[in-house]
Design a protein around this nucleic acid. Structure first.
Lengths: 220, 220
DNA sequence: GCTTTTCGATACGGCTCGTAGCGTAACTCA
DNA sequence: TGAGTTACGCTACGAGCCGTATCGAAAAGC
């Protein structure tokens, strides 16, 4: 992990890496986070328990690495409209969260991360920042279609665009997460449509001019 | 828990109930979910460990009860406009999630609940359904102010209103949860304003008429 | 006073964690 | 080819926690 420039000595086994992460995912799927034990993962992977501790200091850190690749399966094909793109990513993310290894692990490591700064950083870089490109490209596409206004020029506009992408990411991912894991209800195509409609048009029926904003910084 | 109509025998000590739940919260704040042990809670509460297991079958079930009362502190004072009400509840919920005992416990029990139907039900009734009235009253107020269209009459309209409240709840709570715990970034007043603006007016600049909906069921 | 239930205290088996020690395997460099 | 260095498998270990069992004492109703 630390130095890839390790010249001398026996190198780390890449096969062991894969076997361990695969074993971690299957153990998560079968036993859940609380049922997952390091000894069991080692046995499933066909390696010694010490081999796990040479790579990760924690169960949590190992699980983050094991689960992060699942999120890389998310894609954003061009479905022709912003509405279709949003609905698509909502359903994709919901399908991902229905996989038992994903949902049990994600919430558990986030819970662990509330008291572990290093783990928070690992989650951000391995999962959150890695998937934010979905929003960025979806937004850019919509701007090219004329569905969204272009970003303001200059560094000011870039910062605003970043904030907008962050916000949209938290809203979409958070809504799906809350619906399926906290409220514990299924994400149906109808729900995805309703969420998309709310996201595109908001609650106010008359659009942005319905209530005059007291300050001019309201733009998302 | 089960029968409050228990006539004979020594009654459960209400003082022990309170002491245990208080001890659970303080232990959560100091040690986090993974550091919490039943023996430690019993010692802090001044009761025997067996007294805990007479009341709850699980660490998770006990923690849900201990944390649920924190969420009851959430209120929705009438701030005069839908915009102000939404911003207020967003900031209140974010402040709640900054309390260490709340964030570490909520995510952990949700993770546990992915493999435990009884725990899912307990979370739904003790936390989710219990706080949904915030959305219902906020929505009703906005309708009275003319900021939102009234519900359609009849059972059809009531069901649609329920779905809308559920959706809004998942979006607001999910966004705050994801922002502060998964993305691990602070919920600032500026972010709350931006989220509220997005929620009220949506992404599309021209309002609901920007893109004609292919089906008529898109209303939130 | 009798029954019923709770309570505190203690003890226990079973499991997991994370580490240590050892001999062996794999790879680099001289 | 041989020396140095690191990874690996295996075994064992102390420490800690879980959830249960058992016991006598306490607190209520009938």
């Amino acid at each position: 992990m630390a130095d890839s420039a390790r010249r001398t000595g026996r190198p780390r086994s890449a096969a062991a890496d894969r076997a361990i992460l695969d074993a971690t995912r299957s153990a998560l799927a079968e036993l859940g986070w609380s049922g997952l034990t390091m000894g069991d993962v080692a046995m499933r992977a066909g390696v010694a328990k010490t081999t796990l501790y040479r790579r990760w200091t924690n169960k949590s850190e190992m699980v983050v690495d094991a689960v992060a690749v699942l999120f890389d399966e998310l894609e954003l094909p061009d479905r022709g409209s912003l509405r279709a793109d949003v609905e698509g990513v909502v359903l994709s993310f919901a399908a991902l969260l229905e996989r038992p290894e994903a949902k049990t692990a994600l919430m558990a490591v986030v819970a662990e991360a509330t008291r572990d700064e290093a783990l928070r950083a690992r989650i951000r870089t391995a999962i959150v920042e890695r998937q934010k490109h979905l929003v960025v490209t979806g937004r850019r596409r919509a701007q090219a279609r004329g569905e969204l206004p272009p970003d303001a020029p200059g560094p000011e506009g870039t910062a605003a665009a970043d904030r907008a992408a962050d916000l949209i990411f938290d809203v979409i991912a958070g809504a799906v997460l809350h619906r399926s894991l906290v409220s514990a209800q299924r994400v149906t195509p109808a729900w995805a449509r309703a969420l998309t409609a709310l996201l595109l048009h908001g609650l106010s029926p008359a659009g942005p001019a319905a209530e005059p904003a007291p300050d001019g910084s309201g733009g998302a």
